[in-house]
Amino acid sequence: MPTDSPSTRARELWEGLAGVPVSFPPSGGVRVVVSPESGLCPPGWTGVVVLDGSAIVTAPSEGTAAVVRDALSGRRADAEAIRDALPTAGVLGPAVLAYLSPEGFRPAAASATVERLPGHHQALRALEGAAGREDADEASLDDITSPAFVVRERGEVVAAAGYRTWPRRTAHLSVLTAPVARGRGLGRRTASAAVAHALGAGLLPQWRARPAASRRVAAALGFEELGAQLSVEIVPGSPG
Results as ranks from 00 to 15, higher is better:
80 E>V: 12
181 A>V: 06
39 G>K: 10
67 V>M: 02
83 R>G: 02
216 R>C: 04
115 E>V: 13
87 P>M: 04
64 T>E: 01
171 A>M: 12
205 P>T: 09
143 D>N: 08
2 P>F: 07
104 G>D: 14
32 V>E: 07
159 A>N: 08
58 T>V: 05
43 P>C: 05
50 V>W: 00
62 E>N: 01
7 S>R: 10
205 P>M: 13
50 V>D: 03
125 R>C: 00
27 S>G: 07
233 E>Q: 15
93 G>D: 09
24 F>Q: 06
196 A>V: 12
237 G>L: 02
235 V>M: 09
156 E>P: 01
139 A>V: 07
30 V>D: 06
136 A>W: 06
182 R>G: 03
225 E>L: 02
209 A>N: 04
217 V>S: 11
80 E>D: 14
232 V>A: 12
229 Q>D: 09
98 A>F: 03
68 V>E: 04
176 L>N: 10
76 R>V: 15
240 G>M: 00
106 R>S: 12
46 T>N: 00
55 A>S: 12
37 E>V: 10
119 G>I: 08
96 V>R: 13
235 V>K: 10
81 A>H: 02
201 A>M: 14
39 G>C: 11
36 P>K: 09
71 A>K: 07
24 F>V: 12
122 Q>V: 10
224 E>R: 15
192 S>H: 11
167 P>G: 13
102 P>Y: 04
171 A>K: 11
147 P>R: 02
148 A>K: 07
223 F>D: 07
44 G>T: 07
214 S>F: 06
25 P>R: 11
219 A>N: 03
151 V>T: 07
103 E>H: 10
147 P>L: 04
151 V>E: 04
158 V>I: 14
131 A>D: 04
178 A>C: 09
61 S>A: 08
221 L>G: 11
125 R>V: 12
